[in-house]
């Protein structure tokens, strides 16, 4: 009897309702609505009266595929993800191994300091870095000049703007994945390394044959969250370059924002959002497939 009482179903619904109702109204309905809007010509006129929006079938998607700005934003976003993602994961892993090294005292201190950029506001940090990247008065070029490298106009040169944004993003984010890697490293049994040392395996060899394979699940998890996050690049170019110079830092989300909320081309913008969703979905599925195959 107590069993029946404990699993009181109406109580379960009472506890679930607030979360499920908010998720339904403010997440699920908007996702479906965005899907519908992406097949309409919803624009600034429809904003006053929704009835002005008409269904236009696949027109937005066709236009997007013929839109050079879309391809530019796609290319830039992939540049950011494919260079920035692996770089940030590598730096995170390196930092995790340093902090986790048995030789180090005060590892808690280093862990804390490396984490500080993660918790700070991306907007504030982007503003600070904008000045650090200043070609004349910026600190970066000052130090580069000291070691004899001529002034690069970091954010003003189309070739350097994206690398500059990647550099800042890695600086800002590596601490987060570092913490996850430290947790992963601490789960590797110590005797594996001891056995390898006795057999005379070098540090590099141990890294390759023990650390990397044992960390594979952690790395996959880190790769998925990093890549999904990096596809959503927005605040850095919004603050630092407004997508310039010559659209070299225009990301998909920034383009989506401009189309949707600056020009109010909401149908077009919704279609862009769905293309982003589709890309993220495909990339995540590929990564999960890799995971499944490696587990077999």
């Amino acid at each position: 009897m107590s069993n029946n009482k404990r699993f009181n179903i109406s109580a379960a619904y009472f506890f679930l309702a607030p979360a499920l109702v908010t998720i339904f109204i403010f997440f699920l309905v908007p996702v479906l609505a965005a899907f519908l809007i992406s097949f309409t010509d919803f624009d600034i006129y429809s904003l006053g009266n929704f009835q002005y929006a008409r269904f236009v079938g696949l027109r937005n998607y066709i236009q997007i595929f013929n839109d050079p700005l879309f391809w530019t934003s796609l290319k830039n976003t992939f540049y950011f993800v494919c260079v920035g993602g692996p770089l940030s994961i590598a730096v995170s892993l390196g930092a995790a191994m340093l902090v986790n090294s048995k030789l180090v005292k005060f590892s808690g201190f280093f862990r804390l300091v490396y984490f500080i950029p993660v918790v700070t506001s991306l907007v504030a940090v982007s503003i600070v870095w904008r000045f650090i990247y200043h070609p004349h008065f910026g600190m970066l070029n000052y130090f580069l000049r000291l070691i004899g490298i001529g002034g690069v106009d970091w954010l003003g040169d189309p070739h350097w703007a994206m690398p500059a944004i990647i550099l800042m993003a890695v600086w800002k984010n590596f601490g987060y994945n570092m913490i996850i890697f430290i947790a992963g490293l601490q789960n590797i049994p110590e005797d594996l390394y001891e056995a390898a040392s006795i057999e005379g395996a070098s540090g590099w060899h141990q890294f390759k044959s023990i650390t990397l394979p044992m960390l594979a699940p952690t790395t996959l998890f880190v790769a998925i969250i990093t890549i999904i996050g990096y596809f959503q690049l927005f605040a850095e170019p919004y603050i630092m370059t407004q997508g310039g110079p010559l659209n070299s830092t225009l990301s998909i989300v920034l383009y989506m924002y401009q189309e949707g909320f600056r020009w109010w081309n909401m149908g077009y913008s919704a279609a862009l959002a769905f293309i982003l969703f589709f890309i993220i979905l495909v990339v995540s599925l590929i990564q999960l497939k890799i995971k499944r195959e490696s587990e077999v």
């Binding site: 908007p30 965005a34 809007i37 993220i280 995540s284």
Partner: peptide, 11 residues
């Protein structure tokens, strides 16, 4: 898996 940007216009 759904990026929040998708919801922003209708929201």
């Amino acid at each position: 898996i759904i990026p929040s940007q998708v919801t922003m216009l209708p929201l």
